[in-house]
């Protein structure tokens, strides 16, 4: 009796709720984007320090990994 009850509750409640999983995915995506930007940002700063005219290019390249977060955000709204 008790075992059956246990099995039923396990089936009914997944370990992570869909919305929680989406939040987790978003967080991980943002973490990945941050890590990617670390390297790009450092290189961009180096290039800008040598040549001011590279500011725009550096800025664009630095924020490119932000697209990762935006895609994850799409997933978040689909759930």
């Amino acid at each position: 009796m008790f075992e059956v009850l246990l099995q039923q509750t396990q089936a009914a409640a997944p370990a992570i709720e869909p919305s929680a999983a989406a939040a987790l995915a978003l967080g991980l995506a943002a973490f990945g984007a941050g890590y990617a930007e670390r390297g790009i940002g450092a290189a961009a700063m180096g290039a800008i320090a040598e040549d001011d005219s590279l500011f725009v290019n550096g800025l664009i390249l630095t924020v490119l990994p932000e697209t990762l977060v935006i895609l994850a955000l799409v997933g978040f709204f689909l759930i």
């Binding site: 450092a42 290189a43 180096g46 290039a47 040598e50």
Partner: peptide
């Protein structure tokens, strides 16, 4: 170590 920054500057130079 910060090779990104240094190599970017070095390549410009």
């Amino acid at each position: 170590s910060n090779p990104e920054y240094v190599t970017a500057r070095v390549k410009a130079r």
